[in-house]
Every structure is written in C-alpha cells, then in structure tokens.
Design a protein around this nucleic acid. Structure first.
Lengths: 224, 224
DNA sequence: GAGCGGTAATGTCACCCTGACGATTACTGC
DNA sequence: GCAGTAATCGTCAGGGTGACATTACCGCTC
C-alpha cells in the first residue's frame, strides 16, 4: 500500500446559545505547538474506533454526560502545514447543544464558552474549522428542525426564536415566527404545562417533534 | 504525538447526467482486495498535497483535461474494517461534470459511467460514499445554481430542466421551470445565439451566471 | 406554399406563504 | 385597579408557485 501515513484526529466544534449569542467551546492548549492558545477540543482516533465513535467519546468527556444535542461530521482538514509536528488529518465534527452549566475541567484542561465573534486567533487551522461549523449550523437552521437541538427538552417558542436570532444575528417577528413553527407539523409538540413566574403572559411549553426537515424552509433573507 | 497512523486516500464520486439519467464514474479494480469489483476512482494523498489538490489531480487524470465542473468535499470515512489491508481513511469528494465522451483508459484502468440505480455492490464502503454524494447533489440543486455544473458552457433551459429531472427523478413543468430560472437573476445569462437544426422552435442559449445561491430555493417536493 | 407536428417561450389565474403590523389575552408588580 | 410585559390571535397586501392556455418558430410533408 502506497502513500505516506497520517495521524488522524477529531476536532469538535461544539456550539450553543448563551446569553442570546452563539458560542463555541474552546480549550486552552497546555503543550506545544500553540501553547497557551485557544483551540478546539479534540483527540486522536483510537485503534478500533470509527470517526463518529471518537467524536461521541470526546463529547462525553467534555460535557461529563451523554448530551442530547446533535452531532454530525463537518469535513476533513489535511493541509501539509497545518500541524508543525507532522502530517495530521483532522476531521471536524459539529455538535449543537443546549446551554449547559459551565463545563468542568476535564483532563486538567479548562474548557470554556466563547462568543463566536471573539473566537479567533485559534491554534492550527481551527479558525477555519469553526467558520465552517458556524456556516453549516446557519445553513441547516433554514431547512431542518435542528434549532431545537440548541434548546433544552422543553422550551417555549420564544426560546426557539432566540436561537434563530442568535445564530443568524437577525431579528425575527415573534408573531410570524410563532405562526410558522406551530403550523409546521412535526416540529413542535405542545405539552400541557405552562411556565409561571415570568413577567408577561405565561408561555406554552413544547417538546421537540419528530420532523427533521422544514417544508417549506425558513429563510434567513427574504426572497429579494 | 499519540495515535496510530492511517493511510489517507481521496475517493471521487464523479457524477454526470447521461441519457437523462444520473450516472457515476467507476473503475474496475485490478488488484486485491475486491479484485474485479467496481470501485470509485481514487488514490492516496501525496506527501506535500492537500486534500483538494489530490482530488483535483485525480480528476484531471481521469478526464484527461481540466474539467469545468464542480468539486467539493463530501466527508471522511474511517471505519476500522473498511479496508482489509489496514487502517485507511478515505475522504470522499464530489465532482459534478457535464456529460463528456467516454473517458479513455488511464493507468491501464478502464473507467466507465454507470447509472446510479445500477451502481451497487461496489468495493469497500463505496456504496455508502456514492449514496452520500448523490444525496448531497440532490440537496444542493435545491438551493444553489449547481445544476449548471452538469451542463456544457452553453445550454438551453430544457437542458437544465432535464438535469433537475434526472437528478431528482421527477417531472417538472417546463413552463413554470422556465419562469423560475429566467427570473432568478444571476443564474442564467442569455447569449444571442439560438440552436438551429432541431425539431421545434429554436431555443435560446444561456451561459451560467455568477449567482451561486438560489433565493428562493427550488424545492423538490411541494410544501405539502 | 399551406398545413402539420413538435418544441420553445409567454401569459393567465387562483392559491398559499410570507412580511408587516394591529389587537387581544394573560400574567406580574406597583 | 393600573401599567408593563410577553404570548397569542387576526388581518391584509404582495410575491412565488402550481396548473393550464396560448402564441412563436422551426422542419417536414404534400
């Protein structure tokens, strides 16, 4: 078998919505190269592991439990100069999670959330991988029900709308949004509970439905 | 640096539309494993190559010239058992090309077009990679102008419509299709030539415009 | 050269979805 | 009570789409 050999790693772009902003989970590198820089959490693929296994394992290590969000592959990155130590191919994975408490240190490394706008100057080519992940997330909100992956198991229509607004950095009319998502069947399942204690009228709580696609899609920009 | 090592290959899912059918380019394997089976064309990543370089190089080797279609990465595949020879990570690339003459043998291997429906039982996990490529192509026709990549530099609206019909395996109303694509600005640029010698009214010839996105998208299935 | 079949292109119309925005409901806090 | 806030329901005009008719232009035949 010809071809030179690569180390293969999986790097995670873990996104969530915190304080109405899209944020990515980063770790501070403790070793060279890029010592002290922020980087995507990641690790090498084990001897008997497939890529999804590695990604899922790392996500569990990061969050401490089996998260209920979404996980999908982004792309492979293998520029010859991307790692000064040698040839490393990195497979980016995109995870969308509800906002959880600040993650606890794992492996002695501190992972913390960074708003997308402030996540630059990362180690390796991780700026690019983050950008690809954000763009994938933005695109997928348009024609899938993936926005619900950013929400806890039960959530209100406003919660969901704030997810769209944070990811797309736009403002959406709450009334039209409500009509759209509640009339798309399979998207939201109403529960019989309502939230109390808030300021305005108590909102209806919903669970995520079975539908994965959004027909017709919810477009970021109007049809010009 | 921890982690075991992988050979890294790039496998090409080259799609075109021939005889109103979506077809994929396959090569017959001359060596073990899977000797005699059909497989995706591919090869290992060179010592100083990045993934897009490898993909582009192989596409040129296959077609004999710089093709004017579209090339994008699909995903990485690294199941431990996918190659009996050892750990091989393969990065799938999707290429969309206009229908060219039957490709000539390269490296002594014969490459030939196979309609999507008959392309199964391929070597390794190439069935899966083809399926992913076809689904990516189908999805991207909805919200991008990528269908034009299946067409020669100058083409008619009917040519373009037949691309959609072949890829989606649907029928599209020619009149509504015409209205849609000609009113989406940046999609088609009219030339002042018309095709002559055909049977009916001579159609207008178009070139591909600069637009990449389709706003609003062209949906496969109506909005239920 | 008048008709004919075939294909391309344009036109019409009703319906649905959307964006924009008003009005109402249901709570909290003073 | 009354104001404030947020959720929910309504209304209406405009744009895009599906369904289908009509016209334009060619080669062909008789």
């Amino acid at each position: 078998m010809r071809g030179n050999l690569f180390a293969v790693a999986v790097d995670l772009v873990v996104l969530t919505v915190r304080a109405d902003e899209l944020a990515v989970l980063l770790v501070k590198r403790a070793e060279k190269p890029f010592e002290g820089s922020w980087a995507l959490p990641g690790g090498f693929v084990g001897p008997r592991e497939d890529l999804p296994d590695t990604a899922a394992r790392e996500l569990v290590e990061l969050t401490g439990r089996q998260p209920d969000g979404h996980l999908e592959q982004l792309a492979g990155y293998a520029a010859p100069s991307r790692d000064p130590r040698g040839r490393v191919l990195s497979v980016g994975y995109l995870a969308l999670l509800p906002d959880l408490a600040d993650p606890d240190p794992v492996d002695g490394r501190v992972a913390s959330w960074h708003p997308i706008g402030e996540a630059n100057g990362l180690a390796f080519d991780h700026d690019r991988i983050v950008a690809d992940g954000v763009e994938r997330a933005r695109a997928k909100l348009e024609y899938t029900t993936l926005a619900a992956s950013f929400c806890p198991p039960e959530f209100t229509v406003s919660d969901l709308r704030r997810v769209y607004e944070a990811v797309w950095r736009t403002e959406i009319d709450p009334r039209n949004f409500q009509r759209k998502v509640t009339s798309t069947d399979g998207f939201l399942i109403p529960t019989d509970t309502r939230v109390t204690g808030g300021r305005g009228r108590p909102p209806q709580l919903y669970r995520r439905g079975a539908a994965e696609g959004l027909h017709p899609p919810m477009l970021r920009e109007p049809s010009r």
